[in-house]
Each structure stands twice: as structure tokens, then as C-alpha cells.
Computed example of a mutant assay.
Amino acid sequence: MGKQFQKQVRALSKTLLSFLILVLFIFGGLYYWANYTPQSDIVEIPLEETADDYDKVENGVHVATGFIDDKGMEATIQNCTACHSAKLVTQNRMSREGWKATIEWMQETQNLWDLGANEELILTYLSKNYAPTDKGRRQNLEDIEWYELK
């Protein structure tokens, strides 16, 4: 009885496995077709960006990238945004040594090219405009009309 029972269990296991594979295949196909979008329905919307818009600076900030308008901005845009978003730069704050170490790390591990004469200009720009800031504690709130929540 033991061998016969084992054969039946194996047969049942194979049947259940086949059934599960069939169910997954059916539901996968249904999911695919439910979310299918024919290529002819996709319409490309052209960007209306001109060279004039790209160079636009408002309130001391380069509109297209968010970089602070200052000497060295163009070189920084050309060398940094070729590989990553400008936001990756503008969200960081580092000393000159920190920016230098970051550039060296990118050159060693991320295939950043030698910046040559632009390196000094870029480091000066970044360390001036994206230096660490002392935030400290926020200022006390004054002249506030408080109310009770009910």
C-alpha cells in the first residue's frame, strides 16, 4: 500500500502543478491583454523647447537646470548634466574638499572624464554656490494667534 500511495501522491502533485501553471498562464495572458496598448494609439507630443528657453535666467537661477547664475555655471552644466540630473548637484551642499572628493570618486568609479582647466572653475562655482549651510534651530514663532482644536 505504501508504494501505491506514493505513486498516487506524485500523480496528484504533477496534476496540481500542471493546473497551477495553466492558471498562471491564463491570468498572465488576461493581465497582459487588459493592459495592452497598441502602438498606433500612442501619439508623440513634441517638446517646444528652444535654445532661447534653455539659456533663460530668472531671479538669478538658470530656469532649465535650477543652477544659481554665477561664473562657472555653464561649465558646471556642461560637465555635470551630461551624466545626471542637475538636481543631484543642487540638492547637495559640500565644502570645496567635499566637491573635489566627489569629482574624484566619479572619475574613479563612474567614468567621469578629466575636467582639465574646467575643474578649478567648477570647484570654485560649486563651493561658492552649494557650500554647507548652518541651519540650526528655526526661529521662534511670534505674533501667532493660537486656537484650541476641538
Rank of each mutant, 00 (worst) to 15 (best):
D52A: 10
E120G: 06
A86D: 11
Y125R: 01
A86K: 02
I77C: 06
N79Y: 05
I103Y: 13
I45S: 00
L22W: 05
V43A: 02
W99S: 02
N59T: 05
G136V: 07
Y147Q: 14
S18P: 00
G72C: 08
W113Q: 08
Q139I: 01
L16I: 03
E44N: 09
T90A: 10
E148W: 09
A64W: 03
V43S: 05
A101W: 05
V23I: 13
E108R: 05
Q6F: 12
Q4S: 10
D134R: 07
L141R: 14
G136D: 12
P38W: 04
S85K: 15
N59L: 04
G72A: 06
T15G: 03
R10K: 13
H84K: 13
L112K: 05
A131D: 14
A11D: 15
Y31R: 09
Q91L: 07
K14D: 11
K87H: 13
M73V: 12
Q139C: 01
D70N: 13
D114G: 05
K128T: 10
P46K: 07
G60E: 02
G136N: 06
F5R: 08
R137T: 11
H62Y: 03
E120P: 04
S95Y: 08
G116K: 06
D53P: 05
L88N: 11
Y125P: 02
G66W: 07
G60W: 02
N59A: 05
G116I: 02
K56N: 10
G72M: 05
D114S: 09
T50Y: 04
K100T: 06
K3D: 15
D53W: 09
Q110L: 10
N111T: 04
N79P: 00
Q110C: 06
L47G: 11
W33R: 01
W113D: 11
K100Y: 10
E49S: 07
T133D: 08
I45W: 00
S127I: 01
D52K: 12
Q91N: 15
Y125E: 01
D134E: 14
L121H: 02
L149D: 08
V43I: 12
L12V: 09
R96P: 04
S85L: 14
V63G: 00
V9F: 14
E142F: 01
K7G: 05
L115T: 00
N59W: 07
V61R: 02
P132G: 08
P38E: 10
A101K: 13
E44G: 04
W146R: 08
H62A: 01
L126E: 00
K150A: 15
T109Y: 15
K56W: 09
D69S: 15
W99G: 02
S13G: 11
P132H: 08
N111D: 11
G2N: 14
T65L: 06
E142R: 04
A51S: 12
K7I: 09
I21W: 07
W99R: 02
L126A: 01
S85P: 14
E145M: 06
L112A: 10
N79E: 10
M94N: 11
A11T: 11
Y125S: 03
T102F: 11
E120N: 12
L16C: 04
A51K: 11
I122A: 00
G98D: 09
E148K: 13
R137Q: 13
N140H: 11
G136E: 14
D70Y: 15
C83V: 07
S40D: 14
N59Y: 10
M1C: 08
Q91H: 14
S95C: 03
T81M: 14
R138H: 12
I42L: 15
D53G: 06
I103R: 12
D143S: 06
